[in-house]
Write a protein that binds this DNA or RNA. Structure first.
Lengths: 344, 344
DNA sequence: TTGAAAGCGCTACCAA
DNA sequence: TTGGTAGCGCTTTCAA
């Protein structure tokens, strides 16, 4: 770092330093204030047309781009909505939801930023998010506690919204309790007369957020009935599926809820290869209503999920930002309906 | 959604304003400088243990979180790596790559941020990214031109890397030319003796980045041979697939490269329903080597893709950041190998 | 209609 | 070992 009197340009090929509004002002022959007025279309001040033109011209010429950090530092707030990257692998459902949400927030003039999953968790993660001083934080899944919410709010975040299984003290919540998914699936199987019901639980990490509630819902669906649920851990690979299928008969099951359509496809294939007839010997139902279920033979029964619309969430965020003092909203937003097809 | 009529709290419980390092200093009875030294573990300065303790104590007590914008404004640079959200729907391959990359960059102490796809394109998008003054920008797909690169660099971005079909003037490039995918697939079909080769081109938008080069590669694979390629537009739904299958015989094709495994599954099902035997009447090959291909019957031949490792890209970014003047690197990073199974 | 200047929160230079 | 303070780029009074 150079100190003392500014030597002209010691660096021979000095990378022309980043242009600031002062540079624009100098080139246009006006003050920095005027530059700011012009570039922000400040309505409280009227600037003559020739001056306007000169400023715009100058800005374009030197390739001026405003410095968001400086701006929001001065303003005391930003329009950034931060979403931590989800801890689960994002499927097509989530991707579509996210796209919708970004579009809707964009239209409300917010900037959506997904914060990359570095290794941080819990309060430490919350602190990292808070450093960016976003105006709102949307947290998918679990992983944010009341202390995290407190950290964020103390750092000026005006709206904290969780999208997950349960509400967190102090934060708005879009409750997406997948318990209902398991419940619907297994209730359907039970209504079809099945009694020995397997429930696939993925061995992969990060999926517990969904698999645990789905299993719980399955359990609830057989409570006080003569049906019973058997938990079936399963890794997402052919070998594991084959091993499970090999001991299928010994399990004495006549139906299975396979966590989702992809695991259902995996298991169905392994069962069929093993000579188990579907739905004759064993009924199968998946979840998520992916396209692939329709393409299987027999066609896969599934549970269709209704996610919240991105627009609605965007509206909630906007409302919360405008009135941070309001009581946290709680909305159950996960719809689940069985789509019976041929496999059950 | 319930609209609550403005709850009591007007300004009664004033939101305790966001604590700054000055507040920490005041509470600890030291100067702001000392606070900064302590919290950043500045090695050039030695602070007594009791003072350290007091500062940490005070920071914890008032819930102090540093202000990233102020910090990077002062420092003159940030450690933020910005990635625009991809314009195509992210599949499992891309998700895994992204996760790896974020982990690797995180370990190098960068903060990865995915910039939400608002409606901006081209230079306008580049300008929006530049406002955040990231230290590096990684752009997936096409959509960044030489002017965009120039805008970013002028705004102090030290490394611009594109991940896409072609290199852009001034930026590093991880060349992922999907041309090779189409070429490998169709060469395989040709080697198996097929002459009338269909190539599925998704009707969905956003996929052109991949589908166009894949088609081009297919065309190249039949150049100067007696085989011919027929372009087959196809939307990702059952109806469209059924209609295509219905006129299959009239097309006179004996093989098809179905863009990827998902479209292959869709088409294969429609063909089978139409009585077309696979691979007897028509051979089918997909791409991406998804799990589902292994679960189909006949098992789906596919083209396995080798994406760059997130670690390697992270290393490239780090190198480029340290030496922004270096000549742009160009790396062909897309490996493609046919995995022959039963469908071809 | 335009300009001078204060100050957002932070770090690093200098002096004490 | 610690404190005073300038200044990063920007917006916004207040004066001229």
């Amino acid at each position: 770092m150079v100190q003392i009197p500014k030597p002209p340009a010691p660096e021979s090929l000095a990378p022309r330093s980043v242009p600031t509004s002062a540079d624009v002002a100098r080139l246009a022959g006006v003050s920095r204030a005027t530059v700011s007025y012009v570039l922000n279309n400040t309505s409280a001040v009227r600037i003559s047309e020739p001056t306007r033109r000169r400023v715009h011209e100058a800005a374009r010429e030197i390739g001026y781009v405003p410095h968001a950090a400086a701006r929001s530092l001065r303003a005391g707030h930003s329009r950034t909505v931060l979403m931590p990257a989800p801890s689960f692998p994002a499927g097509p459902l989530y991707s579509r939801f996210l796209g919708e949400l970004q579009g809707a927030l964009g239209r409300l003039d917010y900037t959506v930023v997904q914060y990359g999953g570095d290794g941080r968790y819990g309060d430490e993660a919350a602190r990292a998010w808070a450093e960016l001083r976003p105006v709102a934080v949307l947290v998918p899944g679990a992983g944010l506690g009341p202390r995290g919410v407190e950290i964020l709010k103390r750092s000026g975040v005006r709206a904290v919204v969780t999208l997950g299984p349960e509400a967190v003290e102090g934060a708005h919540a879009l409750l997406m309790d997948h318990e209902i998914v398991g419940h619907r699936a297994v209730r359907h199987l039970r209504e079809r007369g099945h009694r020995g019901i397997g429930v696939v639980v993925p061995a992969e990490h990060g999926l517990e957020v969904f698999s645990a509630p789905r299993l719980a819902g399955a359990r609830r669906a057989v409570r006080d009935t003569d049906a019973a649920v058997t938990e079936l851990p399963l890794a997402y690979d052919e070998g594991a599926a084959a091993r499970l299928a090999a001991r299928w008969e010994s399990l004495g099951l006549d139906a299975v809820f396979a966590y989702n359509d992809e695991y259902a496809m995996l298991l169905m294939r392994a069962l069929q290869d093993e000579g188990v007839r579907i739905p004759g010997d064993t009924a199968v139902i998946g979840a998520d209503d992916l396209m692939l279920g329709r393409l299987l033979r027999p066609r896969l029964s599934t549970v269709h999920l209704e996610l919240p619309s991105g627009r609605d969430l965007a509206a909630l965020v906007d409302r919360a930002v405008h009135d941070p003092g309001a009581a946290p909203e709680r909305h159950k937003v996960l719809g689940a309906a069985v789509v019976p097809r041929e496999s059950s």
